[in-house]
Write a protein that binds this DNA or RNA. Structure first.
Length: 198
DNA sequence: GGAATGATGTACT
DNA sequence: GTACATCATTCCG
């Protein structure tokens, strides 16, 4: 591997090695990519939530490591995928440092590429709803439990930070669907996005 | 072993 | 707006 490639990889890993709330904010506008069955599926991240390790009772990591949340305590820049309500897969990006237990839940995407493939997995829904919700986007992009722990720098799932993008306007507020630590304003949404949930 | 609980989505009134 | 499917995980005993 060339020196330049090593530098790029280090920079990509350091992006995730920060607190979840900081990474969460920066993920708005980034591209979530899945190379699946010879096709590249792409969505633009428009809604996320940060789950931290200290003082966050809503985080899966709040009571320490368990078999389910093990990858949340693993190295940053890896996936944490879990089953919600026994039905839906939810996709997170592990942040901070290994052993800490922080992650960012990706809640909604603006579908950009591979829409036909997304439609085939999602059934008869409007395109604006293809990836509007954490369970929905996992279904649309083909995320499964087997992707839990995957290294997002190596693929086939990855996150692209656009080199040239106007910094999106981001609104911040309480997270959705939780009953603990409801006051923490760690949900980030691109202002005015029609692809966000709610 | 048993019971409660979801970081949800869909259907229905 | 409300109802509920559905099951792995977690906690308690």
């Amino acid at each position: 591997m060339k020196v330049a490639e090593i530098d790029v990889e280090r920079a990509r890993r350091e992006f995730f090695a920060r607190s979840a709330r900081i990474v969460a904010r920066d993920l708005i506008g980034c591209l979530l990519v899945h190379d699946l069955e010879g096709e590249r599926l792409v969505g633009r991240i428009v809604e996320v939530e940060a789950y931290e390790s200290r003082g966050d009772a809503a985080s899966h990591s709040a009571r320490g490591p368990t078999p389910r949340n093990a990858s949340m305590f693993g190295p940053p820049g890896h996936a944490y995928v879990y089953l919600s309500y026994g039905v839906h897969c939810c996709f997170n990006v592990v942040t901070a440092d290994a052993g800490v237990g922080e992650a960012v839940l990706v809640r909604a995407l603006e579908p950009l590429r591979g829409l036909e493939s997304m439609r085939s997995r999602r059934g008869a829904v409007a395109d604006v709803d293809l990836c509007r919700g954490p369970g929905r986007l996992s279904r649309a992009l083909g995320f499964e439990l087997e992707h839990d722990g995957l290294d997002l720098v190596r693929g086939p799932i990855g996150i692209h930070v656009p080199t040239r993008m106007s910094r999106p306007r981001v609104d911040r507020g309480p997270r959705i669907g939780i009953t603990k630590s409801v006051e923490l304003p760690w949900r980030f949404v691109e202002r005015g996005s029609r692809h966000a949930s709610r």
